[in-house]
């Protein structure tokens, strides 16, 4: 009885958490593309104007970024100017929560059929590598190990701290700018 009463609240909390994580990750994608040459190298081969989306099916939270050229991403929030080029869709809010709360690695979520990829698979692979790199940078090593298949051996603490600080600063600035607007 008590569990039934709390269920809508738990579901609402998960929805809010996933929405917040999408907002943070979207802004962080834009930020990392401004500071990390490896991400810029990966992104450069994407067509200019390329739109990438992560979303929860059927009409849940969305994260949309655009490649604006030179390996840079622009975060669009939850609405897109054009149809998507690549969309990674979680089949259910619960699956998005598993990944966003680092209980299931992205690669494991793919292997468990939690998500669908719509669009050019090679671009989806590239974006997955970018997301993995982002998670390795912005998460503490112990949590990042739960999020990515393998934590990069060549990512050392000073580089990680400096990059993470830059990314978080840019994310915070972007949040403030959005709130002011």
């Amino acid at each position: 009885m008590l569990a039934k009463r709390f269920q809508p609240m738990a579901s609402h909390a998960r929805r809010l958490y996933v929405e917040l994580m999408f907002q943070v990750m979207g802004r962080a994608l834009q930020a990392i593309s401004e500071v990390d040459s490896e991400v810029q190298r990966e992104a450069r081969t994407l067509p200019q104007g390329f739109l990438f989306e992560m979303m929860v099916m059927p009409n849940g939270s969305k994260l949309i970024v655009e490649h604006i050229g030179e390996g840079r991403f622009h975060y669009h929030g939850g609405s897109a100017p054009r149809p998507m080029d690549v969309s990674i869709r979680f089949k259910h809010l619960a699956h998005a929560f598993l990944v966003m709360s680092f209980q299931e690695k992205t690669a494991v979520a793919f292997a468990n059929d939690r998500m669908l990829v719509d669009g050019d698979v090679s671009y989806a692979m590239r974006m997955t590598r970018v997301l993995n790199r982002l998670e390795s940078f912005i998460l503490p090593r112990i949590i990042a190990r739960r999020a990515v298949k393998e934590y990069p051996e060549n990512l050392h603490l000073p580089e990680k701290l400096i990059s993470a600080a830059q990314i978080y600063l840019k994310v915070a600035t972007h949040f403030v700018q959005t709130a002011r607007a």
């Binding site: 690669a107 793919f110 292997a111 990829v117 698979v121 090679s122 671009y123 989806a124 692979m125 590239r126 997955t128 590598r129």
Partner: peptide
């Protein structure tokens, strides 16, 4: 090969 979908698995 790095951009091939099967590399994910």
């Amino acid at each position: 090969a790095l951009d091939d979908g099967s590399i994910m698995f």
